[in-house]
Write a protein that binds this DNA or RNA. Structure first.
Lengths: 180, 180
DNA sequence: TGAGTCATGTAAAGAGTTACATGATTAA
DNA sequence: TTAATCATGTAACTCTTTACATGACTCA
């Protein structure tokens, strides 16, 4: 095995909230959890097929319009068990954050490198934008505090991502300000 | 292409600091930059071969002891150009942080979930350990402030990783404390 | 009627991990 | 002499991305 196929668990988790099509799942990877995992439809459709073969999900075909067929996937009891199991076992492996910018920084020798201000400024822009995006998203998903109660995990990770970006922006600003 | 082969640039960057063997490079991925990228020797040796075929590195064979051959790799001028080019172009793509624990959290519905305290505590332990490890590492690599001058990038990313872990630990503690 | 989106798949290739395989050197 | 480390490679497999391919629906 190369990794551990986390994709299958994420799909199970998303389907466990509500039945979805492969297309819906693909969109969820852009918006809902795009902050923490990404997957294309070319990975999702085959995975759904495998999950169904293994008995963890089933699908029903619905028709919209004249003949467009949609496959709406549901989690089976066995799929629910698998999901609960994954969440319940420990998570002792911290994956390295693969941040290309940070890698480039590593190879900069001195604080006089003329590329440094530009590099930091570019990242500052990117992370400021991302921070703003997350702020909008928090306001969209949780317009009312009462909603947090039944989507506590979602709230937590949005809030975590927000804090993380806040730190990143802060750090970039401090680093820029300290440059000669 | 699947990604963009960042590994080749990291290898060039490491070799640019000093000639190294494949074995040395493998170790560097555990210690030096393990925080930001990981690679096994099974990926490194073939990549070195490709870089040499493309003229970006060369190697000389040295013999230690009676017959153990080591291949010491150097960056060629073309390799140096490629490295500079990579560092100089923009880095506009922010990769999603693939944090398995955060993913699991997403699927927790309520703050009463009995698994929540245990999950958070486990991560608190892991990230506290990592924070301590980074602190030791900063003290080891930069025992004297004068050393920062010529290894500015290395200093920056260590300091960045430290701040990041600090935030993570803080967030876990705050989240744990806010639990009912 | 045309553009944008909805919807589902497969193919090809590269990136990354785990396992297989071998042998030399060093220090206890 | 033996265990740990140094040293280099390949094989098999999985994960991930990009590209190829097709067709229906909706709204302006």
């Amino acid at each position: 095995m190369a990794q551990k196929n986390k994709l299958q668990f994420i799909i199970l988790g998303l389907l466990n909230q509500q039945p979805l099509t492969g297309y819906d799942l693909t969109k969820a990877f852009d918006t809902e959890i795009g902050e923490f995992w990404q997957a294309q439809h070319s990975q999702i459709y085959p995975q759904l097929k495998r999950l169904e073969e293994q008995g963890y999900v089933t699908h029903e075909v619905t028709v919209s319009g004249a003949k467009l067929e949609k496959k709406l996937y549901h989690v089976t009891p066995a799929g629910g068990d698998l999901l609960r199991q994954w969440i319940t076992v420990g998570t002792p492996d911290l994956t390295a954050t693969k941040d290309e910018f940070i890698l480039k920084l590593y190879f900069i020798q001195t604080n006089r490198d003329p590329r440094l201000p530009g590099m930091l400024q570019e990242q500052l822009q990117l992370h400021t934008d991302k921070l703003a995006h997350l702020q909008r998203r928090l306001a969209t998903v949780f317009p009312d505090e009462a909603l947090i109660k039944d989507h506590f995990g979602h709230y937590l990770i949005l809030q975590h991502a927000l804090g993380r970006e806040h730190y990143y922006v802060d750090w970039l600003q401090r680093t820029l300000a300290a440059l000669p």
